[in-house]
Design a protein around this nucleic acid. Structure first.
Length: 293
DNA sequence: CACACAACCTGCGAGC
DNA sequence: TGCTCGCAGGTTGTGT
């Protein structure tokens, strides 16, 4: 379901509701998503405080730190609840009277009378726990750089680390088609099938081109388009194809701005030629063979 | 190492 | 109405 703009939208929507709340209860109805949900999740999270919510790649990070809670039983829990939405995951704020739906796998009940509810029909998503040593002083995001699921990840696309020099050095001597390359999390994170398709369309680069043949000027254009489109999509609240919703259950409005993705057989907005579909590494690519060289 | 592809799983729309 | 087929926003693990 979600690429970077959708996950960022969810993060921003959740922030107001969950930041500085205490978890009073946890219900796990389905023990396994892509991987098993930690067995002791309930023990870890109950009476713990959510001090912050962050995002790395398409992962949402709930920062948990309970050493501040002043109760009779003072818990010393320090760690990150790592949440991935996979293809079909949703994370929504609901109230206790909200009817339970099929695939509502996890409820995290908060002390503000709200519930953070995870729903994921395909179960490609993940909920993981990473403890952080009390002695750890580095920011959580950096601490997670060594985590099994994070250590291979490339830079965030909206930072200056994702730049022309970086990409040229990564692309050197490689034959990978440019579309697969920009969707590769080792190279840059957060760019999925929709935004890879769109940015190549606007950069007028054929998705099948081997990355070694792409010249610096083209990389510059492509990187700018990726950044531009991701930012624009975040402003629109992400793309809803059929069922993406933000944390309030509302869809995103970027779909109406898509120029290539989902428009196979329709006319190119630049030259009126018919957009074509091909398959690359098992994913659909739509492009204009006239504009994209 | 670099690359292609199957696998994980459910739901939905198209076509018969 | 109901069946089968193919496809869907992602990521990992395998095989060549």
């Amino acid at each position: 379901m979600p690429e970077l703009p959708e996950v960022e939208t969810v993060k921003r929507g959740l922030e107001l509701h969950v930041k500085n709340t205490v978890i009073t209860h946890v219900i796990v109805r389905q023990a396994v998503l892509r991987w098993p949900i930690p067995k002791n999740l309930k023990t870890i999270l109950t009476n713990s405080k959510i001090v912050d919510i962050q995002r790395r790649a398409k992962y949402l990070l709930l920062i948990i730190n309970s050493s501040e809670i002043k109760q009779q039983k003072i818990k010393k829990i320090n760690g990150v609840l790592i949440i991935h939405l996979g293809m079909s995951g949703k994370l929504q704020i609901v109230t206790p009277d909200t009817a339970l739906l099929k695939h509502d796998h996890v409820d995290i009940v908060l002390n503000n009378n709200k519930i953070l509810r995870y729903n994921d029909p395909r179960r490609f998503g993940a909920i993981l726990w990473s403890p952080i040593p009390q002695s750890c002083t580095t920011p959580v995001i950096h601490y997670l750089d060594n985590h099994e699921r994070f250590k291979h990840l490339g830079p965030e696309p909206l930072t200056t680390s994702f730049n022309t020099n970086y990409i040229i050095q990564k692309a050197r001597n490689r034959a990978t088609p440019v579309k697969s390359f920009i969707m590769d999390n080792n190279i840059v994170v957060g760019v999925g099938n929709i935004y890879a398709t769109e940015s190549l369309f606007y950069a007028k680069i054929n998705p099948t081109r081997a990355v070694s043949t792409i010249i610096p000027e083209e990389w510059q254009i492509l990187i700018n388009e990726i950044k531009k489109i991701l930012k624009k999509a975040i402003k629109s609240g992400g793309t809803t194809l059929k069922d993406f919703t933000n944390s309030d259950g509302k869809p995103g409005y970027f779909k109406q701005e898509l120029a290539a993705y989902g428009r196979s057989g329709e006319q190119c907005i630049h030259c009126n030629h018919i957009l074509q579909t091909i398959r690359q590494q098992g994913r659909t690519t739509v492009f204009c063979s006239e504009c994209q060289k």
